[in-house]
Every structure is written in structure tokens, then in C-alpha cells.
Amino acid sequence: MGGTEHLDIQREGATLVLTLNRPEAKNALSLPMLVGLYDGWVEADADDSIRSVVFTGAGDSFCAGMDLKALAGRSTGGERYRDRLKADPDLHWKAMLRHHRPRKPVIAAVEGYCVAGGTEMLQGTDIRVAGESATFGLFEVKRGLFPIGGSTVRLQRQIPRTHALEMLLTGRPYTAREAADIGLVGHVVPDGTALAKALEIAELINACGPLAVEAVKASVYESAEMTETEGLAAELKRGWPIFDTADAKEGARAFAEKRPPDFKRA
């Protein structure tokens, strides 16, 4: 499965589970974590048996943002990963989903702190589940910094602009309920159950036709910046070929025969 000392990669059936694993540092981002995370996204895209990804954190936090000392490769064993960053200077942005969009659906399972870089990575996921004690926020301005992980662009496209600007300009923390109220997360569940809920959603996705799922996700993001007329035309280009697949025929047969479909990605 791969992974690094700060990033665990596991399989749960057809779901790849990527777990940030620096609980003693509230899963603050390190170079080993970013390298492992990037490798996980690549694995998910490359392996057709993977139909969904769950993204979570070990311990009592999702991610408390960037650890600048660790990113520099000091004191966390990161020295041996520096060559990876030199070979691909964009690797950290791909790992954080700023410059990469996985073709498989990504479900975030958040417990505890999901702030700064954690909230920025969250915006690169598709479906979001939070424990009721989770905390969100973009704290950069409070430190005189800029949330350069994509938040000034993405956040206003995902939640109402007034809420995006309040989060960006005040640097204040948000509860899970507040995050749900403004549309940043879709589910708030009892503490300790976010991962189970995310895996439950993943199973529902995994039971669907994989070609259809990936085409639907691609169409949603592709059409987001188009006019309605352009988007509808693009949707037809992506959608019509799905009807000609063996999976589409299998879906119809399974419905008629009252049995679960056996999709083959064909």
C-alpha cells in the first residue's frame, strides 16, 4: 500500500483510506506526509479497483496546518524526501489538492482541528463529514500570512461569498455546526464516528457504476465555470458515451432481474 511515517494508506474494500498520521502534532503537515499523500492520490487514480477515497487524520485531529520546520525536512526524518520535492517542485500543491483533482470521489472524515492548511485541503474534497466537536478556520491573517492553498479562490465558489470573506478576513474558528450551516461540510455526526460515516458514504458510491461516477464528478467540476449553455453541451459530451457502455447495459439488466449489478468498468 505504500505510505510514509506520517501518512498511512489502507484499503477498505474498493475504498482507499488515506490517513494523516502525526497525531502528536495534530497532524500538522510535514514533508513525509505530503510525499505520502501525493503518492496516495496517484495510487487512487492509477488503480481501477479503487472506486472512492476517504481522507482522514489519526488521533483527535484532522490537520492543524503546515509545520514549516518539518516541511524544511528538519527534525522529522524528512531529509530523505527532499529529492522528491526537488524533482517535482509542485508536489506539495498536488498533495494538498491545490493542483490536482483525483478522478475518484474523495470523502473527508474530520475530527478535531481542521484549520489553516487543513481547511484548505478540505476544499479539494468532494463530500465532507465532521465530528460535532470539529473546528474549522483559516487563521493565516491573524499571523500576518496569506492562505495560499487556494482558499481565496475556492471558498467563495463553495459557500456564499459573505461567509467566505468572514472566514478569510477574521481568522476566527468555526464549529462543525457553523461549518454545516454555511455549507462547508455536509454531515455533522457524533464525535468519533466521522470515519464510519465517510466509509458508509463510500460504500454507496462503490455500489454505483464506476465509469458513470467518474464522468459525473468530472462533469460537475468541468461545467462549474461555464455558462449554462456551455455546461449543458459539455454534459452531453461526457454523458452520452456512458449509455453505450457494458456497465450501463448491466445496470438495466440487474434492475430488471432485481439483483445487484456487477459493474466491470467496461
Rank of each mutant, 00 (worst) to 15 (best):
W93Y: 10
Y221D: 12
G112H: 00
E24F: 02
K197L: 07
A64L: 07
A179F: 07
K258R: 13
A212L: 10
Y81T: 09
S52G: 07
L169A: 02
S49V: 08
P260I: 03
S133R: 15
T152A: 13
R103V: 12
K69M: 12
S223Y: 02
A207W: 02
G149T: 06
S49E: 12
Q156W: 05
V115R: 02
G149P: 10
R161G: 05
G65Q: 09
E120P: 07
A196V: 08
T152V: 15
E120L: 08
I205H: 04
F62A: 04
H92G: 05
T170H: 00
R143M: 08
G13K: 07
Q156Y: 07
V213E: 04
A109G: 12
D47T: 09
T125R: 06
D45G: 07
E12Y: 11
L97H: 09
D181R: 13
V53W: 01
G65L: 10
A164N: 02
A266R: 15
K197P: 06
K217L: 15
A109R: 11
A194S: 14
A256I: 08
Q10P: 03
D47G: 01
S30G: 14
R172G: 00
D39V: 01
T56Q: 03
G57E: 03
I148F: 10
T245S: 15
A254F: 09
G118C: 00
E200Q: 15
W240N: 13
A164H: 00
T119E: 06
A266T: 11
S75Y: 15
L165I: 04
P147L: 11
L20T: 06
Q158D: 08
F146N: 04
A64C: 11
P160S: 10
P102F: 08
A130N: 03
G251N: 03
D67M: 12
L184H: 07
D8K: 15
P260W: 03
V213R: 04
P190L: 00
H187R: 09
E178I: 00
R128A: 06
A95Y: 01
D88N: 15
K197T: 15
R11F: 12
A116G: 06
D83H: 12
R22L: 10
L232Y: 08
A248R: 08
S61Y: 01
L29G: 09
E132R: 07
I9G: 01
A234G: 01
R265E: 13
E132M: 05
L29Y: 13
F55L: 15
R11S: 12
A134K: 02
L138W: 01
F62E: 06
Y221C: 04
R259A: 10
M66R: 11
L71G: 02
E225T: 09
G40Q: 02
T229N: 08
V129N: 04
A194L: 02
G78C: 05
V53H: 08
N21Q: 04
K69V: 14
E111M: 01
F146Y: 14
V188L: 11
F139Y: 15
F62P: 05
G137R: 03
I201Q: 01
G186N: 12
R84W: 01
G3R: 04
A248I: 03
P241N: 02
A198W: 07
Y113A: 15
D126Y: 05
G124V: 05
A108F: 03
T227I: 11
M66P: 00
M121F: 10
S151F: 10
E12V: 09
L85H: 08
F255Y: 15
T162F: 05
